[in-house]
């Protein structure tokens, strides 16, 4: 089976001499739910930009199914990948339905209007995300959790085989975090969508995501070896790996078959130790 996403030796830096991502390789099978975790500055959002074709890697290739991203136009990428972000500019008062409909912009007819099939996709996306009830309300009048569901609905309405999400649960309380992950899981199962989500919540990732890509901020360091790990979530998010990546001390415990990680404090650095008595 052809992987939905293949990253082959990709290297990218905002300054050429300082790569954020260095020689990163991974594959995501179709229909997989991949979490991307790692401390701030490790290159998670950069990786998402690369997968969405917003930036080009300095070296290496990204393949979606068997198509090289470099040879895709903006429209061709948009047929394969939908991106859900959390940026929100409340400038002009679009309603929820209008916002979700924008996902179909590419498919509008010659006179700039959507087809009945587009409308059907929008309706389905609203239903799946349980946003139909406030479809005619303005986006700015919603709570953060409701708005996040609307943005996911827009991603769904784009009807792509791959869905990328940048921290879909930031700003959300526990109830809404769980609802978003339940929603993503049901989308994965019902539509077979390949999902890649950046997350800071390792425990949620451990519960919901099949695989995890753990990035360490080592892209620019001269340290040998890769600065990422990818694999089954339970094998990647081990206490040792997480402690190393985030430079913290962890408490880890098992509840049933699920492992939970709880941060205890900063990891002691060599420079933090008191001077030995003379």
């Amino acid at each position: 089976m052809i992987p939905a996403i293949q990253a082959q030796h990709i290297t990218f830096g905002y300054r050429r001499d300082r790569p954020v991502l260095r020689d990163v390789c991974f594959e995501v099978p179709p229909g997989d739910f991949l979490a991307v975790a790692g401390p701030n500055g490790a290159g998670k959002s950069t990786l998402l930009d690369l997968l969405a074709g917003l930036r080009q890697p300095q070296s290496g290739e990204i393949l979606l199914a068997d198509r090289n991203l470099r040879s895709c136009s903006v429209a061709q990428i948009a047929r394969r990948v939908a991106v859900v972000r959390q940026e929100f500019i409340p400038a002009f008062g679009f309603t929820v339905e209008e916002t979700v409909l924008m996902a179909r912009t590419l498919h509008y007819g010659r006179w700039g209007f959507e087809s009945p099939a587009d409308r059907q996709l929008v309706r389905r996306a609203l239903e799946l995300t349980e946003t139909t009830a406030f479809a005619t309300r303005g986006l700015g009048s919603l709570s953060a959790g409701e708005r996040q569901r609307v943005f996911i609905a827009r991603g769904l309405a784009q009807d792509t085989p791959i869905l990328l999400l940048d921290e879909p649960t930031s700003f959300l309380d526990l109830k809404h975090q769980v609802r978003i992950y339940d929603l993503l899981k049901s989308i994965q199962q019902e539509k077979g969508t390949t999902i890649v989500a950046i997350t800071h919540d390792l425990n949620l990732a451990a519960q919901y995501c099949d695989e995890t890509l753990l990035l360490s901020p080592g892209g620019s360091s001269a340290a040998p070896g890769p600065h990422f790990r990818i694999g089954k979530t339970s094998e990647v998010l081990t206490p040792e790996a997480v402690e190393r990546a985030f430079e913290i001390r962890l408490f880890s415990g098992m509840v049933g078959r699920a492992r939970f990680l709880f941060p205890l404090g900063r990891k002691a650095q060599d420079s933090d130790r008191p001077d030995p008595p003379a």
Binding site: A52, L54, S73, V74, A75, I77, A78, R79, V81, A82, V83, R85, E87, I89, A91, F92, F94, E98, T99, M102, A103, R104, T105, L106, Y108, G112, F113, R154, Q158
Partner: peptide, 19 residues
């Protein structure tokens, strides 16, 4: 028709396929 998504944001417009 494309101004709708452009008025929402650059990245949003790019990711739904607007050049």
């Amino acid at each position: 028709p494309k101004l709708n998504i452009i008025s929402v944001g650059y990245h949003d417009a790019r990711s739904v396929g607007v050049p």
